[in-house]
Design a protein around this nucleic acid. Structure first.
Lengths: 209, 209
DNA sequence: ACGTGTGAAAATCTTCACAGCG
DNA sequence: CGCTGTGAAGATTTTCACACGT
């Protein structure tokens, strides 16, 4: 069965929460309680979890350890993903050290930039190559996913290179530009300014002018 | 009429695109063409734009300048928003210099941190205060919106302070934690690791295990 | 003839409400 | 009894299809 994107988004949150509860030594949790802690309706929690089989106990709730392992296996990867990070500016550097990028599910294997002062350096324990070498390095190192933290003006060029490399399957872009790629490359975007604009739009009241 | 969030998200993209087209000196564009450039269906473009009145010309398309001004006024703010940025780590610093934060719609008026080596400094042209002073500084400077780039462990504490300040109306958080606030404070979240997890989930094929 | 504007249909996502099991 | 699992209802968002103005 196909799992919807909003469901996956929430699964990641359940996973984090369960990790915490597990550390606190909690044994059991109900959909109601999870919902309250995450700002999600209990019925939504139950529906999300039910897509992957009956894992709770009626009249009791969910066994924290068991549910954690279960969600973990849903989100698990076949192996360790190898990532490349393109654009070692402030944002790229911030992500390199960011807690979101500390996981045993993936590893940043290479950096790419065009700045001669960065190429050849080892930054945060990862070697930086010239962008031109990206397709080759990606093939050599088995990199399948790219994080783009380049200016909008060069984002599409990076995507085109990724396509040509033949090995990149997914791209997470932080550039504020639309990207076109073949259908077999999965592109996700995090657009910071859009989020800020949305916030301000609804703050001012939502209507026009 | 209430405007849906997905619509606002696309409006921001139309706005950017129209800005480019305008600079290129283009006079007219169709919903079909805008859609192709942004990866959005033409019918969706037309529906989004039609919420705000009849602005296109049948048989012709949209007049670029006119549509640009129109979308601009929809997204416009009553004045210049004053923002505070909490947490001047790598990510906070990156955002400070980020192109997304260069706009005449808002201005970052103050930074906040707990690190003594940052408090009192002027970073990127903006003064950094101790987090404890946030409610007071926010009131003095008319800050209504906060950007949170703090570790997850302190994000909720920042929200609580913001609530107590009495003047904060919106928060954009980059922390990977759920946040609870009163209903009159609008909270948006950008969760980088969730986006990456989603990408990897659908890359591996979407199903469980 | 062409491309917008828009009701209506379709698809997607969320919430309800309750049967059923521990 | 309490809480899950789930079909059905409801809400929201996208897509279709075509009437209409230029």
């Amino acid at each position: 069965m196909r799992v919807a994107e909003p469901t996956v988004e929430r699964l990641v949150q359940y996973y984090r929460l369960l990790g915490q509860l597990r550390e606190e030594g909690r044994l059991v949790v109900s959909s109601q309680q999870m919902g309250e802690m995450l700002g999600i309706k209990a019925s939504q929690v139950r529906k999300d979890l039910s897509y992957f089989g009956e894992i709770g106990k009626r009249g009791v709730g969910y066994h924290v350890d068991r549910l954690y392992d279960h969600v973990s296996s849903i989100l698990s990867s076949p192996g360790v993903w190898r990532l490349g990070l393109v654009g070692v500016g402030h944002l790229g550097y911030a992500l390199l050290g960011h807690s979101a990028f500390r996981s045993d599910k993936f590893r940043i294997e290479a950096l790419f930039d065009v700045d001669p002062s960065k190429v050849g350096q080892v930054i945060n324990g990862v070697e930086c190559y010239h962008l031109d070498q990206m397709p080759q390095v990606a093939r050599e190192k088995g990199i399948e996913v790219l994080i783009l933290t380049v200016p909008g003006s060069s984002a599409q060029a990076c995507v085109d290179m990724a396509v040509k490399s033949g090995v990149i399957r997914g791209i997470l872009s932080f550039a504020p530009t639309p990207l076109v790629a073949q259908d077999d490359i999965l592109v996700y975007r995090v657009d910071i300014s859009v989020e800020l604009e949305k916030l301000l739009f609804f703050l001012k009241g939502g209507a026009g002018v």
